[in-house]
């Protein structure tokens, strides 16, 4: 039986993500990125995502889209959608015009002020090919980030869209999220409210 081509994607478990940015910093460290560059972004999402208010975060990087806007915008053709789903940026070709940053619905590519070129996550493709997991995956203290194969995943257990995250249908974002569960909230009344 022919082995089906994998379609790698990030799966973020929001039930586990504590919004700590360990992913962002470990990536920055491992790849020795310019301090201003983050290949991962952790942002707060709606406190009311599960009904009762609580702190919710989304950690995303490049979403390795099916129809990458960066690749369409780039005048040099520096972006390639690989067969395994990864959108790879060829920095050798990049001329730093920043059009990709404008075109990406997620604002993923960032301008490296020293290299004067764009920079973005490549899902640690070299590590994946060597049978290792991306740095953010192995660094997350809550093990909230995983690499999945979109051909294998049960899409009914995950979502592609969240408040504060651009509509996945625009460019076919491959990132999937496990939604957080609700928390029962008991909060007592405050008697002295009127005197505050």
């Amino acid at each position: 039986m022919a082995k089906k081509q994998k379609r790698y994607a990030f799966l973020i478990n929001l039930e586990r993500c504590i919004g700590c940015n360990a992913c962002t910093v470990s990536c920055k460290s491992f790849y020795d990125l310019h301090p201003s560059i983050n290949r991962r972004f952790v942002r707060e999402t709606s406190e009311l995502l599960t009904g009762t208010p609580k702190r919710n975060y989304i950690s995303t990087s490049c979403n390795h889209c099916d129809r990458p806007a960066c690749a369409t915008a780039c005048p040099t053709g520096a972006y390639i959608k690989l067969d395994n789903g990864i959108v790879k940026h060829n920095q050798d070709r990049c001329i730093g015009c920043r059009m990709c940053a404008t075109a990406c619905p997620y604002g993923v590519p960032q301008f490296d002020p020293v290299k004067k070129k764009m920079d973005k996550c490549d899902m640690c493709v070299d590590r994946l090919e060597a049978g290792e997991q991306p740095i953010c995956v192995v660094s997350c203290p809550l093990e909230a980030i995983a690499i999945v194969d979109l051909n294998e995943i049960d899409e009914s257990q995950v979502v592609a869209d969240l408040p504060g995250f651009a509509d996945s249908s625009i460019t076919g974002s491959s990132t999937r999220f496990i939604l957080p569960k609700g928390t029962t909230v008991v909060r007592g009344g405050i008697k002295s409210w009127n005197t505050l």
Binding site: A71, T72, A73, C74, P75, T76, G77, R93, I95, C97, M99
Partner: peptide, 9 residues
């Protein structure tokens, strides 16, 4: 090099 992606860009 900006001339390299006429087909898409």
């Amino acid at each position: 090099r900006a001339l390299l992606n006429f087909g898409a860009s």
